[in-house]
Design a protein around this nucleic acid. Structure first.
Lengths: 202, 202, 202, 202
DNA sequence: AATGAATGAGAATTCATTCAT
DNA sequence: TATGAATGAATTCTCATTCAT
């Protein structure tokens, strides 16, 4: 029965994922409110009612998606510590990684962000789960860089905000359909790195 | 009768504004979909039906808000040409202006952006009305700067995207409740200017 | 002032007619319920509110149209007495007259009949105003014909109903879009007369 | 599961009928436009929303009713071929049948006709579904009768239209509240048969 | 657990009618 | 009298959620 329970749990988990995949697709395409449970159920190839065996309500699906982003983040989180050697290379590589994560989860972000911008409790959870941890990891790192003179002494908090907001802003520009951003996505880490590290002035 | 017509027109315009103000408030607070016509009408202190004398439907209210942003933009648009003297000062002042506009229209953006991210036809109109004109004005300016060696030769398109995405990203961070961004809003132009013009490296 | 009053009255009457003309058109095209006061006002080139200076409410417009049919009927009513000479000719001419009236008021009937079929108080008024008077006039006439042996002794009531129902039915077939009926309208009196007077059997 | 599916299908069909019955009643009483979904749902003893599980919208209910008339017609359709023996008897019996069908579906016709008179797309469907098939069946029959001299040579198209319009007209007279027609309904086939076959002239 | 029909609260929208100008 | 903006009751339709099977 122990084994049975495990199988059960796996099946349950698989079903959850199946529904979340469907939700990602439908939310991204239609937006949270215009997406219907029927559509998600259809996409997931289950009955409407089945969804309620795995999620309390429609909003709970969004929380499930938030957790997914969180997992992705944590998987990538180690990376920042792996940065060795020359800072410039590290920084560009870091940007590449972050931007790849964003691109790979475009649909996920398109599904979540609009609703997060509008739903207060979701907003808090988003900030605590997704945003704050990133800053916590990065803050010490930037402070160390400043301490050993690798980068200029600037308000660390704001520095981090500006950099991550740039990425967020580019993501949203992409979501809003800016083709220049979409097409140059691969080159952007280099461009950003050049601007942010050396500046526009000659 | 000419006078009468004018009074009529003024009254009509005032009523439109009254409704758009209410819509801004309610959309920003509840989001486009959870906001109801009843709530907006209540906030505007008119009957539900009155709204439909001025706007074809709920979505048309959003278009009305888009036009408002557009007007704000156009009023500010001249500014960039007014930039004389030293580029560094100009750039910082430009950022200050843009960020003040963003802050002053925070509710407006909070009302519009989430729906724009999700509604394709709105997205197109948003891009054409709000985004593209900004780029058109800025592009020539940046090219001139590069031509006379004031700034490094970089892909103008991407440069503009990175800068405006930074502002957009900060706006959204602010909307998402990032207190550090909210509190430092005044100082951000200086910080961004320092980073973007001179870079992080010492 | 007496003259003034007369002019006033003429103007009022003209305006009423103007509105009724518009109502006929719009009701016929859209049906009573889908027709809006705004549309009728637009067609009549008056303001919405003006209509309420001449008619108590939307249904009252229908009553106005009923009265119009009634007037038409009365103008034609004398005709039946004018019938002299050979009965066969008279009958055919009578049918021609009735059918011309129907055809000339096609829009009017299309506007009224559907609503009369559904609105009880209108139905009663329709019957009393339009239908019953016709029968009253015709009944004596047919009885006389039977008395002098011009036509067979049949239940006069039913005979009249059958004949007028045939006309009503053809009108409605026409309204329902039956092209054969529409195209043959001119020939129908002859056909009907032949059938009704001499029968199908050889 | 096959059995289960069948039970399901039966239940579904029963529910559809239940809703159509209710719609017939309410449409006939109030007319299509004044009838509300709430009333129909109440009459059918289901929730408002349930109706939309079976019909796309309010108009689709009317189409459902049209199909019902169509079925009735088809069930009766064979009859005309069953006509053997003496034509006079056949004709009278045929009229009896048709008029019984009309009477038995009085509410149905009252529900449908007014809207059909006003709604173009419904009108086309009505003609194609209900009217045209009848004529197609009857046309050959009448031609045969003329060929073998049973009836006079008259324009078949018009002959059919006149006869069926008479029935339609009587139906509508009945719907409009003509008591003489209502009361004499049983005798009408005999009267019509006498008139149409032998004529009014002695 | 899975199903999907039933539910009914809730929202957008329409439009006859009123009434201040 | 004429106007047409304002009103708000009324209606259709949607869809998250429940629950009997």
């Amino acid at each position: 029965m122990g084994k049975n329970t495990t199988i059960q749990a796996l099946r349950t988990e698989a079903r959850r994922e199946q529904v979340l995949d469907a939700a990602t697709k439908v939310f991204a395409k239609k937006g949270f409110h215009k997406a219907t449970i029927k559509q998600i159920a259809g996409e997931a190839e289950v009955a409407d009612g089945t969804i309620y065996n795995y999620f309390a309500d429609k909003t709970d699906l969004l929380l499930g998606l938030l957790d997914r982003i969180n997992e992705t983040n944590q998987r990538q989180g180690h990376f920042i510590e792996a940065g060795k050697g020359d800072f410039e290379t590290f920084f560009r590589t870091y940007l590449e990684h972050r931007m790849n994560v964003l691109r790979d989860n475009l649909a996920l972000f398109q599904a979540i962000l609009p609703e997060v911008m509008v739903n207060e409790s979701l907003r808090e959870r988003y900030y605590e789960t997704i945003v704050a941890p990133t800053y916590r990891v990065a803050e010490d790192y930037f402070k160390a860089l400043q301490a050993n003179g690798t980068i200029k002494p600037l308000d660390t908090q704001l520095l981090m905000r500006v950099i991550s907001s740039t990425l967020l802003g580019l993501l949203i520009s992409s979501l809003l359909g800016d083709e220049a951003v979409q097409e140059a996505w691969e080159r952007l880490p280099t461009v950003i790195s050049e601007i942010v590290l050396r500046g526009l002035l000659p």
